[in-house]
């Protein structure tokens, strides 16, 4: 099995682009330069500046902001954010994979509809959805009521405002972003392939681990990317369902721009955070294309 592969690095049939290849790519590159590179450059510039007492950026040169970024406080917060994102990703794969696979095996007519059904709950407002979870998890809520009715517990379990509630919220929010990409690559597999593996004497478990997983691996890696990466910066769910008891890296960065009115330090945090990610991504990417 290949390492965590960025899905496309290994197309051996890829050719050198000629005129059209470049012309068609130009809009994408222009977009990235205008709306990703330029903002990053602005931010990079800010990170060396100071501020006035209103929080406006004052143009001067200082490395002080970067000196603070590597304070153990912030590294610990980053570690916590990555930890929550990692657990969320693993749970999403475990819960979402069978669903994606099952949907992909349905007749075409039903498939699209099931896919849409996965996404529709998320077309309600985030806050309303989260408040519904609060109504479910609170002390006198649905879940505690049911557990007490069945007699499993005698006193309400404190569920809300705990790390468990945060994980429920995170898995709920990101599950579709795992199911959809996996579906995208599972859909093209033929049942005949699975059966062939079975006919050759492989049990369902072996067929699964030796045939199905490798063939849907691009979908899994795509899903992991789409869940893990945004989940690192997520803090609205931690705030609402976890009671904002511990800071996440997203809170810390946002607070610099708002409450602390220290945009240059926020910019430095943002730059380091983004660069760390870019480095990690580039490393994984390079290794993925070298293992071939």
């Amino acid at each position: 099995m290949q390492a965590l592969a960025i899905p496309d690095a290994e197309n051996l049939h890829a050719r050198r682009p000629r005129l059209w290849g470049w012309v068609l790519l130009a809009p994408l590159v222009a977009w990235l330069v205008a709306f990703v590179v330029v903002p990053m450059v602005i931010l990079f510039g800010y990170s060396f500046c100071t501020r006035d007492d209103l929080g406006r950026v004052v143009f001067s040169f200082t490395l002080e902001n970067y000196g603070r970024v590597f304070d153990p406080i912030y590294l610990r917060i980053l570690g916590r954010s990555i930890g929550f994102a990692a657990v969320t990703t693993v749970l999403c794969v475990a819960i979402g994979y069978p669903v994606a696979w099952y949907i992909a095996r349905q007749p075409e007519r039903i498939r699209d509809k099931l896919l849409l059904l996965v996404m529709i709950p998320f077309w309600t407002s985030f806050l309303i959805r989260t408040y519904a979870w609060i109504a479910i998890l609170k002390n006198e809520g649905l879940l505690n009521g049911m557990l007490q009715y069945v007699g499993l517990i005698s006193a309400p379990l404190p569920l809300l405002y705990t790390p468990a509630a945060v994980l429920i919220g995170l898995v709920y929010a990101y599950l579709p972003f795992m199911i959809l990409p996996i579906y995208g690559s599972a859909e093209k597999l033929d049942n005949a392939l699975v059966e062939a593996a079975h006919d050759l004497g492989a049990g369902p478990m072996r067929a699964f681990s030796e045939v199905i997983i490798p063939l849907t691996w691009p979908g899994i890696t795509a899903g992991m990317l789409l869940v893990f990466v945004p989940a690192i910066g997520m803090f609205a769910i931690t705030d609402l369902m976890g009671g904002a008891q511990v800071p996440m890296i997203g809170n810390v960065i946002q607070n610099q721009f708002f409450r602390a009115r220290n945009a240059p330090f926020g910019a430095a945090l943002g730059v380091v955070f983004t660069l760390m990610f870019v480095l990690a991504y580039a490393l994984v990417h390079r290794r993925a294309s070298r293992t071939r």
Binding site: R51, D53, N255, Q256, R259, A260, R261, N262, F265
Partner: peptide
């Protein structure tokens, strides 16, 4: 003024 940052920290 800038003591807001101290509170945040």
């Amino acid at each position: 003024g800038d003591s807001g940052a101290m509170i945040d920290e």
